[in-house]
Amino acid sequence: MITFSVRGLRKSYGGVPAVREMDLDLRPGEILALIGPNGAGKSTCFNMMTGQVVPDAGSIRLFGRELIGLKPRQIWRLGVGRTFQITATFASLTVLENLQLALISHHHRIRALLARAGSLYRDEALALLRLVGMEPQADRPCSILAYGDLKRVELALALTNDPKLLLMDEPTAGMAPRERIELMRLVARIVGERNICMLFTEHDMDVVFAHATSIMVLNRGRLVTRGSPGEVRDNAEVQAIYLGSGAVYDADAVKGVA
């Protein structure tokens, strides 16, 4: 069964192609990494899938339903959870309130005037925070959280709508190395337990090769290759693209996790 499929996706800005002819499929349990050097088209690709950028051509389907033309909020309601490259949380709400609001929205109660939001979905919110390890900070405002903690709040937010697909734009950017591994292990566990699928972009090759079940490499808007981490690592073109970019990866680390 295919959860998510993209066909013939194209986008250019002022005649300059950012993404050309992108195809991909995602099945439950799959963790797909979208990698490539700066300007490869990862973010454009990502933003088309979340509804922020409208593609020039192609189709994006979730369980066979066309997503193109839908707004981000409509896509979210269909069961897509997402995180942002630069974290976007509600700074003047507490961590718990952030989660509660997302849950309130998921349950279609955002227009309620009489209920007390603070007592709604509290346990569910706390459970999600526990899952990402943020329960001890539930009552702190997001405006004073450390960046790595914000990333974890983002993950929790992305899970509030019981997603079938997780889209994560550089989920570990700005985090300390140990935090990165922890976070990605957590994500991998969630994906596995809930039997959902996930697509993420990432600069850190350790993260990518340790956790992705498959990898797509983009360069200048074009798909270079797609395959398992092992296949991609041995691909000559990929090595050429990354040669000199300073990105190295440790095969032992991959084995260690696998």
Binding site: I104, I110, R111, L113, T160
Partner: peptide, 25 residues
Amino acid sequence: VFSPFGYTLRACRDSEIRADAIGID
């Protein structure tokens, strides 16, 4: 202000893009 609608308003004020990403118009 403390109702779901109030939270929603505060959310839209703090981050419109995140509000959009959790289903809020």
